[in-house]
Design a protein around this nucleic acid. Sequence first.
DNA 1: TAAATTCATTGATGTGGATCAATGTGCCGC
DNA 2: GCGGCACATTGATCCACATCAATGAATTTA
Lengths: 254, 254
Amino acid sequence: MTVPEGGIVVTMAHHVDISSTGLAVCGRCKVHGECMILKGLRLPEADRIARSMSQLRFGPGSVIAVHGDAMDHVSIVTQGVVACGKALDDGRRQITGFLFAGDILGHVFEKEHTVAAQAVTEVTLCRFQRSSLEHLAGEHPELGRHLFQKALQELAEAHYHELLLGRTTARERLAAFIVSFVDVMQPNHSPALLLRLPMTRFDIADYLGLTFETVSRTFTGLARDGLISLPTPQEVKVNDVDRLRRIAEGGDGN
Amino acid sequence: MTVPEGGIVVTMAHHVDISSTGLAVCGRCKVHGECMILKGLRLPEADRIARSMSQLRFGPGSVIAVHGDAMDHVSIVTQGVVACGKALDDGRRQITGFLFAGDILGHVFEKEHTVAAQAVTEVTLCRFQRSSLEHLAGEHPELGRHLFQKALQELAEAHYHELLLGRTTARERLAAFIVSFVDVMQPNHSPALLLRLPMTRFDIADYLGLTFETVSRTFTGLARDGLISLPTPQEVKVNDVDRLRRIAEGGDGN
DNA sequence: TAAATTCATTGATGTGGATCAATGTGCCGC
DNA sequence: GCGGCACATTGATCCACATCAATGAATTTA
């Protein structure tokens, strides 16, 4: 697919610094207690690293990082959704993953961004100096090990995504997308549940290696077969998670 | 694509243990000095870990590991080529990467195999107890950091592969494959050089998300355009790396 | 040396999803 | 309330690659 004019919004990265420092601000954080960086640290260290922290806010569509940028910070997404991915010069784009509240953007020991990052919704980030974090990881093997395991989990997800992109049908891809959304958003899934998709058909297409028209048609197809309902384009009512899951796994679910 | 009968060789993992222990065997190792595990260790530690090492040999096509297997060892490929990847129940398969001499199979801190591994050629591995390695990484931050960075490099490659699988043409994919091979095999690339491909068209297809027929036709197409020559099916003479590279990057090289 | 097997090439045909195009819908600014 | 815009849906058509099929070359087996 090629990008229609304006498909990639080349907004300047006009973020707003909304920082205050120290652990006080952490107490008000939505992902407090789940924060991958601070979890497991003792108070003095946590406070020290929290002082080097800054908070940023990005509007929908604005560019958070570009492939090749120097990466001086590792961030936690505290609100909103971020799309990460790579692009070719002619505009073709592959979204490698979406980040939600609590997810980590960037890696310790990585000097520059290997993927681009763009805000899908309004996004707030907590940024930590990468060098401080590396220093801290040296002192706290637990932290280093934890960040390592996060990276390995990302790697496993990337491999699964490769299988999806290389070997599955549009229907299987969209089923997998919906199912992963169910698992991420509400692990306590009731038989029928309602999802709110923050991203456009265009974003979903770039994540699944399809065009937005095919994504739209495939949504309609799944709805026609009763697997989902589409009250509004942004809302997906999931009627049969199990069958969707079987489809996603390449099974006989249809 | 679907797998024709016998496409995935379900050979038992009948490996042969060819071990001896200690650093003595390392001295005879083909990747000695480049070994990612032992490099940077001082003698006593290196000798200790080398004693926990075992060497295995696998015949072409034999299964080294299956997705979900417990992973008790981390290995270095010392000879041959390994294909790593994931598969669906119906046989559809995506090779996520090939490992060559010096590459690492498995990760510290990963309890089970997240991808399957199969020998493409005859393969020899040096296996290290994962637990010993984790212990060692705790004592030698340098080693842990090094393995972390290797994992991050894999992640970056996986992201690039996602872009390839999701957004490029057969011609671009094969060009990228050939170019990556050139970069891996002989960084000192002369204007025209000869590659020996150890894997079949079928393997290449499963790596590029294509069918083997399309791979074959695309090879022929590149040869017809003079970018490569095919003295034998296993040999690729690269006539114009730069233009291949431009094609691989989605540029105007044709 | 023949027969079997594996791998590669090439041709004929089919098709899933891309592309091109029109229309609908909700939202925002004024 | 109206024009403009971004996003979504749907239809018509196209095409890159898959699928089906035949043949050839190289290697192994007996």
